[in-house]
Design a protein around this nucleic acid. Structure first.
Lengths: 106, 106
DNA sequence: TGGCGATTTGGCTATAATGCCAAATGTACA
DNA sequence: TGTACATTTGGCATTATAGCCAAATCGCCA
């Protein structure tokens, strides 16, 4: 793996890492239903407002969501709906491994 | 978000977190081309064998890859090729944000 | 302008992830 | 059986992440 490849994987990992947290996954899925402001999202999650704000900042830094300030609120929305395709794939992974454990295949 | 949902997001995050590392992304992509043993993979990466072995263990725990022991080697292969779809999506995200920064759109 | 609600930032602690080395394990084969 | 090779595991130091509180911003409106 050369330097250029390494940089590519760094960048890829940065975006995927932004998704790699339960709360942030929830935020992504919730935002896929429409824009929400920080307090609305905070009401759905067991965490401090500042924590939610920081999670949103992580998603924003990865260009997964964007926020628009209207009045004193910031409305976030999903910028890259394609990330939702992760959910289906990952749920396949989970089902498959559960099936494997139960059925003792292999 | 109730307890059941929370558990679901925990599980999803566990799998995605397994992908959220440059080296592990490389391993996934490399294994998509066919099975490889640990030393082969180590030769392609700037890291210790033990480090690569641990990365593979992470991917295996997430049911993304599987390993088969043949002789004294363990050959790993990609179990869930659907995760490759992450790459395309994530590269879109990256391109879009690059374009945005350059073109100052928005 | 003063104060209130919404959001972000700073700072701190606790926890988790990373990566190396060294040692242990497992397998083949002389 | 002993040695060499492949892989995994234990242990440790370093670094990154998470989450809370408190404080700082920002915008609105009386």
């Amino acid at each position: 793996m050369n330097a250029k490849d390494h940089a590519r994987y760094e960048t890829l990992a940065h975006v995927i890492k932004a998704m790699a947290h339960p709360t942030r996954l929830f935020l992504v899925e919730e935002l896929s239903r429409g824009e929400r402001c920080v307090l609305e999202l905070t009401g759905m999650v067991r965490a401090d407002v500042s924590t939610v704000s920081k999670h949103l900042a992580v998603l924003k830094a990865a260009a997964i969501v964007e926020g628009e300030k209207r009045g004193s609120n910031v409305y976030y929305r999903l910028k890259m709906p394609c990330v939702l395709s992760f959910f289906g794939c990952v749920e396949n992974v989970i089902e498959a491994s559960a099936r494997e454990r139960l059925g003792l295949v292999e």
